[in-house]
Design a protein around this nucleic acid. Structure first.
Length: 933
RNA sequence: GCCGGAGUGGCGAAAUUGGUAUACGCACUAGACUCAAAAUCUAGCGGGCUUAACGCCCAUGUCGGUUCGAUUCCGACCUCCGGCACCA
């Protein structure tokens, strides 16, 4: 220990020692309780950013805390190394994606080591290495066998010019983002994982983790799964169409429809005979007497079937609606309702009424059945649609507890509507003047024999009735879709499937795994899967018949890799299985997972799905992989400005008002007192991605200071605005601790005063109280995953220690003991936040350099007796206002306290001449006196 | 639009869950040390009134309510942030 605090020196020293002694490598040990601390693995971009620093600092704090609490801690890290950036880098700089990735991993590992995160590096995994992705493929084959991996055609945005599939963002406005030419759609065969098969479990098992997961993540997953219970109801289609049979149709079809239309150029027979039915999904079967139309999606089979019979206007509209869906506008909810009457009629199976079949742009083919029953009286969207096209609006449910039809009329009148007749339709004219739909549950009216029932009863009974009569059934639908995992990319795990002209789709054999990626492929960012251009890759033989066959050339979504990586850490060298079940039984589930809340839905739903699949395969025995989840807030940049002299800094947004141009660029900046500011420097802006470099921070301030600051500056779940001045405060704190430890070093070293029963001065006793109160606070905070408040507590303890006035050479045994106790506790409690400094301080006290792990150090024990103060301050309120504070013994009884307070001179002044109505004594806390005068 | 979350000093934030509001830190101001600066140390730091000193009043987005007592509970409103976005 040097007299001065040299961050770099001690950090290098301990990092070296940890590596040499493999301090953080752990193995299965049934004698010890285990703790699995996991942080979301990084993409190896080449640079750590401050968000990573925050994430891993928090994780390391938990890992160290649990270690000091005697747990066998597993704390691994790896690389999410498949994905687009490697390919982009390869295109841009002509490098090999594998080499680029490996180099980045080396660079980032160095950064993590310089940060001093206590990882067990022997367990490191990387997704792009064959020994890992072999088991992506292994799982794929398992899921294929289980019927959970399947192939289906899906429509994607397609640019003919670039020969590329485009995401919705890339196709916005209907034009290709790269070449500006119009986007078309294309059918593509894609592989899917059947996540929907686990929809109920994904939703219902959430109760198992409810206590340990943030509310907002649970809510977002719930929304994403979107379970909705209701019923299917079949409406028979009774009348065909209007077009003369001999009218040629095909060439009048708009381009988008031509293919479908030409398949069936013969118009269907017209007339009233039942031809088919349209099945709708509804959650409000109780409103079915209010149906004014059946509205279907433009892609609905009934439309496709009748395509060649429709008039040009209808075809035009269908085409428009489909085109619009292909290129969604930014805010679909703002989109106006559009649609057209097809001329088809359908029969409401409950009322027997015939209603028109409309095409509506607001009905989605992908959800439910692609068809809805339109009930404008009780659904806002249907209401809007009916208003726009002048369709009738009928009331069939009214609020409960208002009694009878009168209230409906009142409501309608109040809204300025004409009264409805007994059937609920408007007597003359079809348009109601009602201003809104009544969407609540209530009592059914105008619903034939069902009238008078509550919505709840109606739903149950009518669903049963429909089922009994064969025109419907209870149904549950989900928003959750199956997970499309095919990617037309090179840098991913190949899908282990072979296409054989005689055997069809054939899975690769397990013994042939991994299906290895070639070294490189002619990828350009355009076109179809790059692997389709590598004959050495795709040319193969059929595993079944041995004839020449072709491999699947798509690769898997990178989210596949992150579904199970933390199981691979348990057993990283296993060549036969993804991991051993015995090891999983010891280490998993994960006790604590920490990461960004941008993964609240996708990653965390997929990995929960994967766990359930692994459970069904028999690899694990639990339903949920993560017991506790912590989602950290983002680290965002500061923008700072300098005044004319360039000396003083002003920070956005607190002390600068800025004028921006249309592009958001700052044109003029003023401080609060009106000074013009210059030299705007934007750092770490999200959009520009030019972050604060962690290496630079470590170089200037040290890893410990950087870590303390990111944890101290704000609660972990809040957004953190990076202020460089804040990190200087962290350095000052570490230096203060260092200075006081150095001051006492000679006195406290070794075990000279490690004896109880010394005489303690008052100040020494106070220091011990502070020490033990701090032990309690820090422990409780860390258990609750709070990192900012324990740092504050440690700062207080360090301040108390600094203020402890006895000079070391004049100190008594008791004083020295109290100081030693405080410094040792401070060192141990500092470990989760600033491990290098803590190790150095600790070794100065215990007198050896072996480190906390070799010394089997433990988090200090809280002693309630020592934390107790001699006197406590009791605030006294008179009529709710704080008037006096008195000092009493902490052991005082309520009666004595009351008496002491009432005898206090000052209290008497406040109470004199008034009648005491009531005295409230809160034991050891407060006394409240109520007087009347 | 719907669903969540949050509003506390100049700033980041604390507050044992109904009991002394503003801990800890940043920034700032003054002083000490210094030829000077940096660093460090000491003091001050929500607003207002008043006093030599004690003290008093107001303040946790706004307005009400419950209570001896409300940042905390209830009701209404305002503002900001996030999620979803026609899911029938």
């Amino acid at each position: 220990m040097d007299e001065k605090y040299f961050a770099k020196k001690i950090e290098e020293k301990w990092q070296k020692k940890w590596a040499e002694t493999r301090a953080f490598e752990t193995v299965v040990d049934d004698a010890k309780p285990k703790f699995y601390q996991l942080e979301m693995l990084p993409y190896p971009s080449g640079n750590l950013h401050m968000g990573h620093v925050r994430n891993y600092s928090a994780g390391d704090a938990v890992a160290w805390y649990k270690r000091l609490k005697g747990f066998n801690v597993l704390h691994p890290i790896g690389w999410d190394s498949f994905g687009q950036p490697a390919e982009d880098a390869a295109i841009k700089r002509g490098v090999n994606p594998r080499e680029w990735t490996e180099e980045n991993i080396i660079a980032m590992r160095g950064q993590l080591e310089r940060l001093g995160i206590s990882y067990d590096w022997s367990r490191q995994m990387a997704a792009h290495r064959p020994e890992y992705y072999k088991f992506d493929q292994w799982f794929f084959l398992k899921m294929y066998e289980m019927g959970l991996a399947y192939k289906k055609k899906t429509q994607v945005n397609w640019c003919e010019t670039d020969q590329a599939t485009l995401s919705n963002e890339q196709a916005s406005g209907g034009l290709c983002w790269r070449c500006g030419n119009p986007v078309t759609k294309k059918d593509l065969d894609q592989w899917f994982f059947k996540t929907t098969a686990y929809a109920d479990q994904l939703l219902d098992d959430m109760v198992e983790v409810e206590a340990g997961w943030p509310q907002n993540v649970l809510k977002r997953q719930k929304d994403w799964i979107g379970r909705s219970e209701g019923a299917f109801v079949d409406f028979n289609v009774v009348s065909g169409t209007v077009r003369p049979a001999d009218h040629p149709v095909s060439e009048t079809l708009p381009p988008l429809l031509r293919q479908e239309g030409s398949q069936d150029a013969t118009p269907p027979k017209t007339g009233g005979e039942p031809k088919n039915h349209i099945r709708v999904f509804t959650t409000r079967i109780d409103t079915i007497y209010g149906v004014n139309a059946v509205v279907v999606a433009a892609e609905h089979p009934v439309i496709v079937e009748h395509l060649s019979a429709f008039s040009t206007d209808i075809l035009q509209k269908v085409s428009e609606i489909r085109a619009e869906k292909l290129n969604p506008t930014d805010h679909d909810a703002d989109a106006v309702k559009d649609g057209i009457d097809t001329g088809l009629k359908a029969v409401n199976p409950f009322s027997g009424e015939q209603v028109p079949v409309w095409i509506g742009n607001y009905v989605m083919m992908e959800y439910g059945t692609g068809a809805v029953m339109s009930v404008p009286g009780h659904d806002e969207r249907d209401f809007e649609f009916a208003k726009k096209f002048g369709l009738s609006i009928k009331t069939v449910v009214e609020p409960e507890n208002t009694g009878g039809n009168a209230s409906v009329n009142e409501r309608a009148s109040a809204a300025g509507a004409e009264d409805t007749d007994e059937k609920g339709t408007l007597p003359n004219g079809r348009v109601s003047a009602r201003s809104e739909a009544f969407t609540e549950y209530g009592v059914m009216i105008n619903s034939g024999e069902w009238s008078g029932k509550t919505s709840d009863d109606g739903k149950k009974e009518m669903t049963a009735f429909a089922a009994e009569h064969g025109f419907g059934e209870a149904a549950t639908t989900y928003r959750l879709r199956d997970w499309g995992i095919s990617r037309q990319r090179f840098w991913g795990s190949p899908i282990p499937i072979i296409y054989c002209s005689s055997c069809g789709v054939v899975p690769e054999k397990y013994e042939n795994l991994p299906v290895k990626l070639p070294d490189t492929a002619p990828f350009t960012g355009k076109g179809e899967s790059p692997l389709a251009k590598v004959p050495e890759f795709y040319k193969t033989t059929c595993p079944k018949c041995g004839e020449p066959a072709r491999r699947e050339t798509d690769t898997m979504d990178t989210f596949v890799d992150s579904c199970w990586y933390y199981f691979r850490y348990l057993d990283p060298n296993n060549t036969e299985m993804p991991f051993s079940s015995e090891k999983a039984a010891y280490w998993t589930p994960v006790d604590q997972y920490i990461g960004g809340d941008d993964h609240a839905v996708m990653h965390l739903i997929y990995t929960r799905f994967w766990t359930k699949v692994m459970r069904d395969i028999g690899l694990v025995t639990f339903d949920e992989p993560v017991k506790r989840l912590l989602t950290q807030g983002m680290v965002v940049g500061e923008t700072f400005f300098a005044d004319e002299g360039g000396k003083k800094k002003y920070y956005m947004p607190s002390d600068v008002t800025a004028t921006r141009d249309a592009k958001g660029k700052i044109t003029e900046a003023k401080s609060a007192d009106g000074k013009a500011l210059r030299h705007a420097i934007e750092r770490m802006s999200k959009s520009k991605g030019n972050g604060v470099d962690p290496d630079e921070m470590i170089e200037i301030y040290g890893a410990d200071a950087a870590r303390i600051f990111v944890l101290f500056a704000a609660p972990i779940e809040n957004e953190l605005v990076w202020h460089e001045s804040g990190i200087e405060g962290a350095v000052r704190f570490l230096q203060r601790v260092w200075r006081v430890a150095w001051k006492w070093k000679e006195q406290v070293q070794g075990s000279r005063f490690k004896v109880q029963g010394e005489h303690f001065s008052d100040t020494a006793r106070k220091l011990r109280q502070k020490t033990h109160k701090t032990i309690k606070r820090v422990g409780e905070n860390l258990e609750a995953l709070q990192f900012n408040t324990p740092v504050a507590a440690l700062m207080e303890l360090s301040n108390a220690l600094t203020e402890f006035k006895v000079e070391p050479d004049a100190a008594t045994g008791g004083d020295v003991y109290a100081v030693r106790e405080a410094i040792e506790a401070l060192a141990l409690m500092l470990t989760p936040f600033a491990p290098h400094s803590a190790e150095e301080l600790y070794s100065a006290i215990v007198g050896n350099d072996k480190g906390m792990i070799a010394n089997d150090a433990r988090f200090p024990e809280f002693n309630a007796e020592l934390a107790k103060t001699d006197e406590i301050e009791i605030p006294v309120q008179v009529n709710g206002k704080l008037r006096v504070k008195i000092m009493v013994s902490p052991d005082i009884t309520d009666d004595d306290l009351r008496e002491t307070v009432m005898n206090d001179e000052k209290v008497k002044e406040y109470v004199s001449g008034e009648e005491v109505v009531k005295i409230v004594v809160v034991p050891k806390r407060l006394v409240s006196i109520v007087v009347k005068g």
